[in-house]
Write a protein that binds this DNA or RNA. Sequence first.
DNA 1: GGGAGAGACGTTTTT
DNA 2: CGTCTCTCCC
Length: 603
Amino acid sequence: MKRRVARLLEDGSLSAGQVLAVTFTRVAAEDLHRELVSLEVPNAEDLNGRTLHSLAMEILMRNHVMETLGRTPRPLNGFELNPLLEDLNPAYGTKHERRKLIGAYVAAWSRLQHEVPGYAATAAEQAFADELTDWLVLHQAMHIGEVIPHLYQYLRDNPGAPERGEFRHILIDEYQDLNRVEQEALALLGEAGAVCVIGDDDQSIYSFKHAHPAGVREWAQVHNAEDHEIGECRRCPTTIVQMANSLIGFNQDRLPRQMAERPENGVGQVVIRQFQTADDEAAAVAAKIAQLIEDGVAPGDIIVLAQRAAFGTPVFHRLRDAGVPCKSYYEESALETEAAQERFAVFKLFLDQEDRVSLRWLLGCNHNRWHAPAYGRVMAHMRQSGLSPWETMTQLASGTLSIPHTASLVARFNEIVHELDGLSQAEGLDAFIAAWLPDPEAVSLLHEAVTACREEAEDVGQLFDGLYDAITAPEVPLEVAEVRVMSLHKSKGLSSRYVFIVGCVEGLIPSRPEAGTPQDIVRAKLEEDRRLFYVGLTRVKASPEAGRPGYLAITYPMRMPAAEAFRSQIAAVSTQGNVAVLRASRFLAQLGPTAPAPAVGEL
DNA sequence: GGGAGAGACGTTTTT
DNA sequence: CGTCTCTCCC
């Protein structure tokens, strides 16, 4: 793919701006971007490697697409969904059920169900979608799941839109991870040019976001295109290729094929170890990693894959305590705690009183039902008067307006106004930060983040933008210098000379389906979990030239604390007192004859 | 609007 | 097993 772009740029038939390379995750996009920029061709630095979401947001903003629909391209953060969930009519079910309905609304879009012949939303689904949209319109916000659907609708309904002819070459990586609406939006973007999709349905692991892996298989036929199969595994040692082939061969729902080994890569080294407890497992993995580093292995060449934080975090903590440079992708985000969320909302509202989502959040926080009954009365008034939430609350506070049963909401509003007034007194950035985070200890991660962007910022607005970026889109470092601990999902697209897959227990990979799940869904889920394990195995990179054969360790414990297993949704064989009893993943038996026998003891 | 007791849920991911 | 959520009651 890289060579193809390079050739076109070199012979001058293409400018960098006419090439679009998209993937689904930010890390993969960053990676792709780096790869393209590193091409030794003119203007390579102008090549575009990005996520579909960031491209979609840019197009939607650029063309005021949302505004013409009466919508605002202001995505909701995860935590901002909480008051929304309370504000939705309880007639649609419990909070859990309402959350599910939001999921179904997004899912219908993702699958383009309303364009499938015979699909009819039930009256109840339609009514729910209307209520949800009403709230979003009133609060001038959008659900993150609406971003791509709106891009798709804009492109489909505006055949003359410049974006439909903008790109002459589109490269789409990890195509099997995209859902229907994403695939169709890209088809419209690539309409006037050549499209190159790269996908492997054996690596389809995103059913929970309604990925449409069949799109890869059908692509060549639907678009009347060439199909280039990549049959050789250039990355992995031969043993790993054999194990991966054997494992994935157990899946029914795939095109039968085998990855060919590359003998020059060598056989590699594979160990499979069982430990008495999860604690022993973490200790052994951390000790082995420390030993490797002592022997001269670069920390950046080592990854630890854990399908649950419960398995990954103990390894991370031990590495950190041993002074090994490491990074956990399970680390708490700066907005994890409600205290941090509250500070964040205050900041946003301070900059923009008309940020309706932040105001709604702040009015309800620290109350068990987010003041939903009182706020519901205020919303009714807003719909009828056309006033904004801030205006309405101001009138209520001054007594110009009166709505029964809203006294505590108004009291809360006065507190918010008082705090914002205090912040506006602060002179200079440091004084502002001190006033905004009077108790930095209570929100230490947020404080760290804001301190890190303090230098770059010249005013309060820039400080917020920097903070927002740092929190929502942390930078992907160019050079990896630490041991990385992450999920199997996150590892997609990466390769590493030393790979540890921890917590390989039955009930996790594969997970145990809920009782009563229909058989076909159980089977599909099992196959997806098998692909997940397959992705993990195939991260191992052989570097014979560097004298590194490629190392894979598969580990699993026999016991772990029951509370932890419950919390992390790990289905134990049995529970004895406070201890969950675990056994080996069934996938270990499917690795074929070249896999070493599992053993106990050190790695 | 708040407290007590019963019941449901918990993961992986995109901006 | 803990924590969040729902229901019922004041």
